[in-house]
Design a protein around this nucleic acid. Structure first.
Lengths: 234, 234
DNA sequence: TTCGAAATATGTTTTTTAACATAAAAAAAG
DNA sequence: CTTTTTTTATGTTAAAAAACATATTTCGAA
């Protein structure tokens, strides 16, 4: 096995992931001999809706959004991925084409495990299979909760939910206030099931009410407690 | 192992399920020694939101709806189950409390597999584990599609979607026209993310347009093609 | 079978959200 | 650094859906 030198530490980092601790030494070697690293610039598609999955994707560095095309040019952000998490496995395990697309939110490095490799691994390693059973079950639960938020909460509740979701997923920057992700208002709208206008308007209302502070695409959360109250009321 | 005589044919039917064909003879015996059959009348809760899952549930006879409580007394039907399908496995595999509740739509017989049994089985049988990986992956894909329908389509599109979903799930009665499930307008509303008034109104509009024919809670689909067009437009 | 409760039907009003319009600011391209 | 494009901001209008109101019908229980 040879890898380019700049990939050595990526490989080291990647091979220490919790999920791969379930593999035997042999299995880990097989994995390492077969993975590919790819880099994606901001706003570049990682996979596209309707195509056939070829890899399990492990986000080594960066952030990814999973979107689904809707009607009349609108799209819905279904979930978001951070480094240390995987994506693309849903369609692969379902043996279906992708129903979503994945897009890099910022420069992102992904480790790709070819389908046949992961297929072989989960059929020979029951602990790995059980890991994915749990992962998918958790995803489905989150999806159920997200769906009810999107369909039943009002605009303010949905935006509050999205901000709290981003906080829980990506955390704060070192200042302890600024959300550690930067999205356009359009992305925020697509995450919250509203038009871009309404995302802009509602966010600036939150700013007027001193719940958040806006600095371009950086959002400081000033009153997490108020945000939770708004989210909870719906 | 002893079972009550009326359960003998249930057990026979149940043990022939595709999923249990993956088990070895020994495993099948273990399963059969541990399952319980329960009967639920119409509108009776099978499990409740917030409780801890104790069983994997196999719907032997009947129909089940999986709902989630929303805000202001509204609830959302997330999925529906027919005989031959399972429910309750999501929370169980995620090792979480239920985020939904399950309710019998009609008299329903369920075969319950205690948690520790299914836990043991999936850890010793990799094919069974892979079966659930695929099942959950398919569920998650359906959930993604459903979410975008609920959030982005207009009322007519959402109702058309729900009717087509019920058709695909439960099929027609022998007359080849009547949907083989009977739901209240409120249930139809909760499946389609709209108020009961709007479900009633929109369904009767469909009837006026000769797309469906209404006979109480029985719905005849007269123009499946038109319904698909409405669903497709959004 | 009758009575009461629940479900259905339909019309009206109000609220919420989307659509549209325009300007200013910011980011990207040359 | 300037120009062009995209994004953000904000006001106005229109459309969609919810809320409300009131019969009518159907279903269940007594």
């Amino acid at each position: 096995m040879t890898v380019k030198s700049e990939e050595l530490d990526l490989l080291a980092f990647y091979s220490q992931w919790q999920v791969w601790q379930l593999l035997t030494a042999e299995e880990r070697i097989m994995l390492q001999e077969n993975v590919i690293f790819r880099h994606y610039e901001k706003n570049i598609a990682i996979y596209k809706e309707g195509t056939l999955p070829e890899y399990l994707m492990c986000v080594v560095r960066g952030k990814v959004m999973i979107r689904k095309e809707g009607f009349g040019g609108r799209s819905q952000i279904m979930r978001m991925i951070k480094s240390g998490e995987m994506c693309g496995y849903r369609a692969f395990f379902a043996e279906e084409n992708y129903v979503t697309e994945a897009v890099a939110c910022e420069p992102t490095t992904i480790c790709l495990v070819p389908s046949h490799v992961i297929q072989k691994l989960i059929h020979q390693n029951v602990e790995l299979a059980c890991y994915f059973v749990k992962l998918l079950a958790v995803d489905l639960g989150e999806s159920d909760v997200h769906t009810v938020s999107l369909t039943q909460k009002h605009i303010r509740g949905r935006l509050a939910d999205s901000l709290l979701f981003l906080l829980q997923k990506y955390g704060y920057e070192p200042d302890g206030k600024t959300l550690n992700i930067s999205l356009t208002r359009e992305d925020l709208a697509n995450l919250s099931n509203m038009t871009t206008s309404n995302a802009i308007r509602t966010l600036s209302q939150f700013a007027t009410e001193k719940i958040v502070e806006i600095q371009g695409r950086k959002i400081k959360i000033e009153r997490e407690d108020v945000l939770r109250k708004i989210a909870h009321l719906g």
